[in-house]
Amino acid sequence: MGLNKKDVLKLAGLAHLSLTESEAEEFAKDLDKMVSFAEELQGLDTSSIDLEDRDTNVYNVLRKDEVKPSMAKEELLANAPEQKEGCFFVPQIVE
């Protein structure tokens, strides 16, 4: 089919996911399966469906604009892989 390892690697770039060679090859087959899924769905008539119709039983879920205490800084940073001066720390962003 049309999709191959190169397509997988492009997607991996978007998803910021490093893959092994064999994973990239394997996932190409999965992409093909996805294509056939889409083809199967194309055969269905969904013209009666309007995804934006307002038929929903849960809407206007809103919260009052009242401040509640935030989490303590130490708790927030407790799982940080690297921190510096009270901030989360990451290496250079190539600009």
């Binding site: 397509d7 998803a15 490093s18 394997e26 996932f27 999965d30 990451v90 962003i93």
Partner: peptide
Amino acid sequence: DVESLYSNSRGEGFGAEVKRRIILGTFV
């Protein structure tokens, strides 16, 4: 750099099935 921090951390952190579904999800 940050880019490789993301890719390597996620590449190492996730198993194959998770990666598969992320790739497919990104695709669709």
